[in-house]
C-alpha cells in the first residue's frame, strides 16, 4: 500500500490505474447512494480519479493513507454535486452557499453505510460473520460459538478485534477532509 501511494505521488500512471481498479467501485457506490443516480455517480467517479491524479503530489505515502485520501476527494465532489442541485432551485445563484447540515448528514450517513459494508466484507469469515451475528442479530457469544462451531474465546477475540477495526475506520472517516 505504501508502495502504491509512493508511485502515485511520483507520477506513475499505472498506480492511478491500480487505484481505479481497486477503489472505483467503492467511490461509485458511495456516489450513487448519495446522489441517487448512476449517471451522476459516473460523473463524480470520473472527477474523483482525475482530481486524484492532478493533486497527486499532495498525497503522503503511508500505509492507510491512499483509500482515505481518495474518499476525502469523493466526499468533496459528492457534497459539491449536492450543493449544485440546491443552487439551481434558488434565485440567488451567484451566492456561494455552504453545504447545508442536511447535505453533510446525508453524505456522512452514506459514507458510514458503504464503508462499514466494505469493512465487513474485507474482514472475511468468520470475523465479519461474528460481528453481524452479535450486533445485528443480537445473538449472545455462546449462541454464536455454538452456531459457528468455534470456541467461545475465539468469538470474544473476533468481537474485540472486529470492533477495534470498526473504530479505526470510523476515526478515519471522521477525519476525512472534504
Amino acid at each position: 500500500m505504501a508502495a502504491l501511494a509512493t508511485r502515485l505521488a511520483s507520477g506513475d500512471e499505472t498506480a492511478l490505474h491500480e487505484a481505479f481498479t481497486r477503489w472505483s467501485r467503492l467511490v461509485h457506490t458511495i456516489a450513487r447512494s448519495a446522489l441517487g443516480s448512476s449517471a451522476d455517480a459516473d460523473d463524480v467517479t470520473q472527477q474523483v480519479f482525475i482530481a486524484a491524479w492532478k493533486s497527486r503530489t499532495t498525497l503522503r505515502p503511508s500505509d492507510e493513507a491512499l483509500p482515505a485520501w481518495l474518499l476525502g476527494i469523493a466526499k468533496f465532489k459528492i457534497t459539491d454535486a449536492l450543493r449544485a442541485r440546491t443552487r439551481t432551485f434558488r434565485a440567488e445563484e451567484s451566492a456561494k452557499l455552504d453545504a447545508s447540515p442536511e447535505i453533510i448528514t446525508h453524505v456522512n450517513d452514506v459514507l458510514d453505510r458503504v464503508v462499514v459494508r466494505d469493512a465487513l466484507e474485507s474482514l472475511g469469515d468468520p470475523r465479519g460473520q461474528v460481528l453481524r451475528m452479535v450486533f445485528l442479530e443480537d445473538k449472545t457469544h455462546d449462541v454464536v460459538s455454538r452456531e459457528l462451531g468455534i470456541p467461545l474465546g475465539t468469538v470474544k477475540s473476533h468481537v474485540r478485534r472486529g470492533l477495534e477495526k470498526l473504530r479505526n475506520i470510523f476515526e478515519e472517516v471522521d477525519s476525512l477532509h472534504a
Binding site: 490505474h17 467501485r25 457506490t29 447512494s33 459516473d42 470520473q46 458510514d112 464503508v115 462499514v116
Partner: peptide, 28 residues
C-alpha cells in the same frame, strides 16, 4: 459508540455499483 454507529449504518442494505464501461479510457 462504535457498536451504536455500526448498527445504525447497517440498517439499510448497500448495493454495490460500478462505473459504466469505458470510464478508465475516458480518464486516460
Amino acid at each position: 459508540d462504535v457498536i451504536e454507529r455500526f448498527r445504525r449504518s447497517s440498517s439499510t442494505p448497500v448495493e454495490w455499483s460500478a462505473p459504466s464501461p469505458g470510464m478508465w479510457d475516458r480518464i486516460t
